[in-house]
Design a protein around this nucleic acid. Structure first.
Length: 271
DNA sequence: GCCCAGGGCTATG
DNA sequence: CATAGCCATGGG
């Protein structure tokens, strides 16, 4: 029943709890994870991952375990600030999420704290998702586009002004359309996403980085913005245009991993 | 009652 | 381009 997988340079805890992914719960060191219509549990002891309810291939894809993280971290380790974050959280990996779930999750994220985003997404699944279970666990799958029909249906979600974004997205986007974006250049894929209501640069970049394999995407939210200004721009207020240019030149094609580490570090330690 | 929270839209310099 | 006010909602 319980399968195991030996891995190196991986922290299950930090990968799940760093704010990139929302549908997990922790019970006595075991994580119950829900993604799209998957429901599985797992825990980590040293370099061994124990899991139930999922296939090995899926986990390797989901947690990007076939990616050489050490060489990526070596490439983005360009200054003392990122160096400290890497030292502290080495093993934290990007999660390859389902693109539809990822897009809608971050459509819910604007001007909300991370715990509350998780609440909204959970009630979204409860209101519109399918019941799923494995063993004694039960939960709700993430609603497919056709399952979200109107705002009335979402009343219990209490999503505020974000509710209309969710409905319009459900009307004109499907998973395959999102997956097709992977074949486009980064800038072009981002522009396409930004064509949808409620999707600006930040939400687009989160979707591209966390679900569509664009590792150069570097989502700039309020926290990252303040952090960048403080440590890389001498405390001066800086426009997003300059910031995008800087992180692209400074961190290179794996800038998204730098964002993951800086965000988590600045969330847990004041700067 | 006030402020803030992984933003985006719209109207303005 | 860069900024300001507004958009619902909940928690401190």
């Amino acid at each position: 029943m319980t399968a195991r997988l030996r891995i190196s340079t991986f922290s299950l805890k930090n990968s799940l709890e760093c704010g990139q992914f929302f549908r997990y719960t922790k019970v006595m060191g075991t994580y119950l994870v829900q993604s799209a219509n998957h429901l599985f549990s797992l825990w980590q002891e040293g370099d061994v991952l124990f899991y139930e309810g999922a296939e090995e291939d899926f986990l390797i894809r989901f947690f990007r375990l076939d990616e050489n993280l050490d060489s990526i971290l070596k490439e983005i380790d360009r200054d003392p600030f990122i160096h400290r974050a890497i030292q502290k959280y080495r093993g934290m990996r990007l999660i390859r999420q389902d693109p539809w779930e990822c897009l809608l999750s971050f459509l819910c994220s604007s001007a909300k704290s991370i715990p509350h985003i998780r609440c909204i997404i959970e009630s979204l699944c409860k209101s519109s998702g399918e019941k799923i279970s494995f063993g004694t666990y039960m939960g709700y799958g993430f609603p497919e586009p056709t399952c979200i029909e109107n705002e009335v249906q979402l009343e219990s979600v209490r999503a505020g002004f974000r509710a209309s974004y969710l409905v319009t997205a459900s009307q004109c986007i499907d998973r395959n359309r999102l997956l097709a974006l992977r074949d486009l250049p980064y800038r072009e894929a981002r522009q396409q996403l930004m064509g949808f209501r409620g999707v600006g640069k930040k939400v687009a970049d989160c979707t591209l980085l966390y679900s569509l394999d664009f590792l150069e995407a570097f989502p700039i939210d309020t926290r990252i913005k303040k952090g960048l200004e403080k440590v890389y721009f001498g405390g001066r207020r800086t426009g997003e245009k300059k910031m995008e240019e800087f992180v692209s030149n400074h961190f290179g094609p794996y800038a998204g991993y730098a964002q993951l580490y800086l965000f988590h570090y600045w969330r847990n330690h004041r700067f």
